[in-house]
Design a protein around this nucleic acid. Structure first.
Lengths: 261, 261
DNA sequence: CGGTTCATTGAGATATCTCAATGGTCGTGG
DNA sequence: CCACGACCATTGAGATATCTCAATGAACCG
């Protein structure tokens, strides 16, 4: 069951049989079940072990003063949280579940030890951390500068590629256990517009979505429609239909193009 | 001159004289000057050394298809970029300057070696990386769920605390070398609203801003007005006027309060 | 001194929000 | 097994924040 992390790391680095076994051993030593819609880690909580999502969907989130919620990251099976968390005084946000989640708790020392004894794992883990940061930066770009419709489509694309990287996507889509309100909280839009945007994507024959089952009818068209370029994700640089149909605009002279805007 | 990193790390960990000297030695070995409005690292560029901003203001940014720009992080003196970048295939964004910048280039191995020989430095560096991630998460929250006015004020508060942590703030404000358009690109708003928001903050007697010189007239009031809580930043947990006037709302039961919204 | 760039301001356009009404689904209790 | 209630997604209409565009004027550069 918990091959997802192994699958993801292998996108960066080939791992030997010994590497895999050591990783699986560490990753499955201590795990616990968390119900849907519960906190795995609460805001303000002190340093704890590293968490690895083995099964189910979770998120980082934070409440605003008025009770609204911003989801700052979606955590899928194979995702690690707080690899270096030992040094923070207290969580400035919480980690909560959407679905029932199985989470492994790994003592930080054990992980460091594993990385030291298996250099490919160490390299892959720092790569993994870099990828999560790239995802966060992309979220800033999307939320800051894209329309609601594009944000929705972009997130659906991101999830498709991420789930594929851990072996949890079907050929033509994936299971999306998030309610509209959860997606809306992640994208910084209201549920009303969430509905509206999804309807438009459906009307354009880009996706189908019923009962938590998402089908991407035309990935290339969807990517084009929402300017999604998967190169920052694992598994985003391979396969025909995932490759961006248009080369990303380069800007060799640096900085803002003089003529634009 | 390059005490800024030392000053910041000291907020987490006391550093011995030997630690400081070793850190300064590594940090000043190779440095170069970059003019204002140039790229330090270009999009797509391969792995390189770790960068440390010694002087001046820079940012991570990314262009969208239509030529608009999203700034995803502001880099101040004492900030490190790409501590673990050696593992990424290519930058998915660029790093550019606002002002003339002095940037130190540190071979990744040398930094790891330094951290190994001086454990307090190693701990402080991982803490520093955590703080940058916390800042990024906070940006997502702000851009996603706050009004333009709040975003502006929030960013001004963030910069105040960050600059104070590296010894670059005055008692009552700081030099802000960003043009309105730069702030707008960072906050995901247009320049028109940028002007408008700044005018409103000025009208409420919270700030003064002329010729790149920002004065925060009433930090406590500003923080309250934009719901800024500096606890996620270095130097954010000390000092009377920086402490949040109202305790952050806790949510012990986890998840969305049932009654709200 | 002239030209360019850019911040500011205002007016109109539009995307998104807020609120309320509807209806479906699910869990619960009879 | 059915009926009821709670919750929530959807939809529509009106309100509003923000955008876009154009005009103005200041600052800077050649």
């Amino acid at each position: 069951m918990p091959h997802h992390l192994v699958a993801k790391l292998s996108w960066f680095n080939p791992l030997s049989q010994a590497d895999r076994e050591a990783l699986l051993d560490v990753a499955t030593r201590d795990s616990r079940q968390v119900e849907a819609r519960r906190d795995i880690v609460r805001e303000g909580e002190g340093p704890g072990p590293v968490k690895l999502i083995l099964r189910g969907w979770a998120c980082r989130y934070r409440h605003l003063e008025d009770g609204r919620r911003q989801v700052t990251a979606l955590l899928l099976p194979g995702d690690l949280c707080d690899v270096h968390a030992g040094v923070l005084r207290g969580m400035d946000h919480a980690i909560g579940t959407f679905t029932p989640v199985t989470v492994a708790e790994i003592a930080a020392g054990r992980l460091l030890d594993l990385a030291a004894r298996h250099p490919p794992i160490g390299r892959a883990l720092t790569w993994e951390a870099q990828v999560s940061q790239a995802i966060q930066r992309r979220w800033i770009v999307n939320i800051g500068h894209r329309s609601a419709d594009e944000r929705v489509g972009h997130l659906l694309c991101e999830l498709f590629v991420r789930l594929r990287a851990v072996g949890l996507a079907r050929e033509d889509g994936y299971d999306l256990p998030l309610r509209p309100i959860d997606l809306a909280d992640a994208l910084g839009i209201g549920t009303a517009h969430m509905s509206c945007s999804l309807r438009k994507l459906r009307a354009r024959n880009l996706i189908m979505l019923d009962d938590g089952r998402l089908r991407v009818l035309d990935m290339a068209a969807l990517q084009r429609a929402v300017s999604f370029d998967p190169a920052y994700l694992p598994a985003g640089r391979v396969g025909g239909d995932v490759r961006p149909p248009v080369a990303a605009p380069t800007n060799p002279s640096g900085y803002r193009p003089a003529a634009s805007r």
